[in-house]
């Protein structure tokens, strides 16, 4: 028996052999004596995985399944918007003309650029450059803050215009269509607010990952937390890409560029 144990392969007999190397074991003690994986495990890959590839695949599949639920969360909001837009088209038409198109466009650009920064951070992780990861993640978070600043100006403008249904509402606008306009603004704030909440979560996660990168916890073959947070951030970006035409653009055809409200 002892002979068999001594010569038996460490992996499961039916497991796919990815390469001829032994699974890499990171104890985390290489640099400063601390454990270096995301959940402070003792080893990478974690002991319940066959190898690093399986661990990474499991993380990716879990993240994509989570993103599928997020897709359905936002799909519900888009669906409510679509149905109410068809029932109250006049108010929604006028409501979308009261939004600030330049600020919305600028925010889209900011988010797209922030997505590039996340991708560059992942690229730096593949090259094993922790400082590059931190630098790009800080750029991403700064762009996230720029998004909130622009959004804040936009919401403040809505407040002064009496377009915030719960706080400051001009009930005399549009006469009997006031209800329709109010419905549009409610949906506008709920949809952009849900998106903004996701952005806050994303920025906190980016901060956590940047801190871990600062501690040199990532390696060219282990940066899964960074990649998963990146997926989340890109998803939030995609949501905004669909929010822009939905809220701002699809009723603009009656207006000319540069025209006032």
């Amino acid at each position: 028996m002892s002979e068999i144990h001594a010569t038996a392969p460490l992996t499961h007999p039916g497991s796919p052999v990815l390469d001829s190397q032994e699974p890499r074991q990171f104890t985390g003690k290489e640099t400063d004596g601390h454990v270096h994986t995301f959940f402070d495990q003792d080893q990478y890959p974690a002991m319940h995985f066959e190898d690093a590839g399986q661990q990474k695949l499991a993380a990716a599949l879990g993240m994509w399944a989570f993103l599928a639920t997020e897709v359905l969360l936002f799909a519900g909001l888009f669906l409510v918007y679509t149905i109410y837009r068809n029932l109250n088209h006049e108010g929604f038409f006028l409501g979308s003309h009261m939004l600030d198109i330049p600020k919305g466009t600028a925010n889209t650009m900011v988010l797209l650029l922030s997505s590039v920064c996340v991708v560059l951070a992942v690229n730096q992780a593949q090259k094993g450059n922790s400082r590059g990861i931190v630098r790009n993640l800080i750029f991403t978070m700064i762009l996230g803050l720029v998004f909130f600043v622009i959004k804040g100006f936009e919401w403040h403008h809505d407040y002064e215009e009496g377009l915030v249904p719960w706080m400051q509402w001009d009930g005399d606008r549009l006469g009997d269509k006031n209800f329709q306009l109010r419905l549009f603004m409610v949906l506008y704030f709920v949809m952009t607010g849900t998106h903004a909440a996701h952005m806050i979560v994303g920025m906190v996660l980016l901060g956590v990952v940047a801190y871990k990168a600062h501690q040199n916890r990532f390696r060219p073959d282990y940066y899964t937390p960074l990649e998963m947070v990146g997926l989340y951030w890109h998803f939030v970006d995609i949501v905004w890409v669909f929010l822009i035409p939905t809220l701002y653009l699809i009723d603009l055809y009656a207006k000319t560029p540069g025209g006032g409200h």
């Binding site: 796919p16 990815l18 390469d19 190898d51 690093a52 590839g53 399986q54 990474k56 695949l57 990716a60 593949q126 090259k127 094993g128 390696r219 060219p220 073959d221």
Partner: peptide, 17 residues
Amino acid sequence: NDFPDADHGHVRAADSH
């Protein structure tokens, strides 16, 4: 095979800069 490129791409990419 259907396993991520952690073992195929990135490690090798890191090896050859």
